[in-house]
């Protein structure tokens, strides 16, 4: 049952991505991209990542779509006679080669949800404790935060979050410089 739901969601995500690539109308592409984002957000709920799902639904599907719509409102939307583009053969061959090469590595990956997979095992092969097990056992004890994602984000990896804030600030300055150069002179 769950597998059927997961496969249906994967099919939805892949189909929306294909339509985002093939639609000629940029507005249509943006709408399909928002649907793609929402599909991924639902997959993340199934993968027990509610924080990522919320952020994706709010930021990926919400803010991102708004930014794209703002851009085509300020620029142009190409005229379209036919709704779909032809597949470009050269680009397709290059991309298919990359995808096939990557697909050969799939059987070497741990199965989805495998409790012995390196990212979710309690010990390294050498017997040392993994960061995963450290965060699960200590976040509540050391930081008093029940949500381990928030705990790791602000306590253990606070500098990382600070760096993220710097990037956001730099991007905001960049947007202002690019769009209002006349004003700043």
């Amino acid at each position: 049952m769950t597998l059927a739901l997961e496969l249906a969601l994967i099919a939805f995500v892949v189909v929306t991505a294909v339509f985002a690539a093939l639609l000629r109308d940029v507005l249509g592409s943006i709408a399909v991209f928002a649907a793609y984002s929402l599909g991924l957000a639902i997959i993340w709920v199934l993968l027990q990542a509610p924080d990522v799902a919320l952020t994706e639904a709010a930021v990926g599907a919400g803010v991102m779509t708004f930014l794209f719509l703002l851009t085509i409102a300020k620029t142009t939307r190409p005229d379209t006679e036919k709704p779909l583009k032809q597949v470009d053969l050269k680009a397709f061959v290059v991309v298919a080669a990359v995808a096939l090469l990557m697909l050969t590595t799939v059987p070497a990956m741990p199965e989805v949800g495998d409790p012995d997979a390196p990212p979710v095992s309690a010990e390294h092969p050498t017997g040392e404790q993994t960061p995963y097990s450290y965060y699960i056992e200590n976040t509540y004890v050391q930081a008093g935060i029940e949500n381990a994602v928030a705990g790791v984000l602000v306590v253990y990896r606070g500098f990382d979050t600070f760096g993220e804030a710097v990037v956001v600030f730099a991007a905001a300055v960049g947007v202002m410089v690019v769009l209002k150069r006349e004003v700043l002179k």
Binding site: Y132, I136, E137, N147
Partner: peptide, 26 residues
């Protein structure tokens, strides 16, 4: 997120008694 997922585990909401394997990797 696929790498962080563990079969049968819940989201990474922890308490004083939490053990690895019952939660996804935060």
């Amino acid at each position: 997120t696929t790498a962080a997922y563990v079969e049968g585990g819940g989201p990474a909401l922890v308490g004083p008694e939490s053990v690895p394997g019952e939660h996804s990797n935060p």
